[in-house]
Amino acid sequence: MSVFAALNGRARWLLALFVASLALAPVAADRYILSVLILIFYFAYLGQAWNIMMGFAGQLSLGHSLYVGLGAYVAAALWTKFGVGPWAGMFAGMAVAMAFGAAIGWLGFRFGIAGVYFALLTIAFAEFTRIAFDHMDWTGRAGGLFLPVRAEQAHQWWNLRGGPLLFYYLALALMLGALWLCAALRAARIGHYWLAVREDEAAARALGIDVFAVKMKAVLISSAMASVGGTFYAFYYNNLFPAQIFDMSRSIEMILAPIVGGLGTLIGPILGAFILTPLGEGLIAATEEAGLSAPGTKAVFYGLALMAIVWVAPSGVWPWLRRKLGLETP
């Protein structure tokens, strides 16, 4: 619990209050609020996974939808075709996602591909896989893969069959688990290696850090975490389409929360998700209220909001908020 010990008194209280209020939220919240909160937790979780790659190790990945999609498709296919439960399916999905992550990492890091080039490599893999799944008969091609919803399985919570409450607490656990894991990683030796590589790769190498291995660890951990998010997605929504889950816009969606919240910080991905998801949902409600039913209206405002946020607070909201709240570690 060294993670918790590193916080100052006020931060501990705030964190405890935050967790407690989320744990009790289902008492007061209706179905809609719960579904928005699930979405927030989901994006906070994925943001945390991506943050390891970019925020910690400094490797810009724009293809994280690949790992989410693989985690979703592998677990869903095992469940629908062979009746293998989601827990085993999750590990299978993790293995596949990590294999892809290893391939991308090996290609990118072995040949010194960095920055925009590396980002494009990750996009290329994700798009390649999307189109491959679009043409793969076994998973229903572009028509999608559907998880059957059967009455006799309705309460098999151990198979992730259940109502919104089950998924609420599952998503909350994912978000908090990822926060704990990232805090632990950040404090560990590898976390310091990542920062060293991010800040100055040549200097890190000169200090004897095996830069290649350090980056590979980042991509493996990050891809494994993202794939777990995918398994969650598959069993929550019960349908998968390659054009949705592998799409580049999914990758972009995933990385907005950590960037807006504060890249490389632990709270940033969570804060960003709590800002952006309600913003998106609020825009849907507001545009409907105003009678602007044309498709795209909401997204236009969303795009403008993104530009405004990066204009006003380029290093994210959390570093600013932390100062305001007096949570700077002494």
Partner: peptide
Amino acid sequence: GRPEHEQFILLVGLAIVLVNGLLM
């Protein structure tokens, strides 16, 4: 001269506005 991810957010925001403006 700012970090790549900041430029990225700015231009992705612009891209979202453009493509959805056309959609509207």
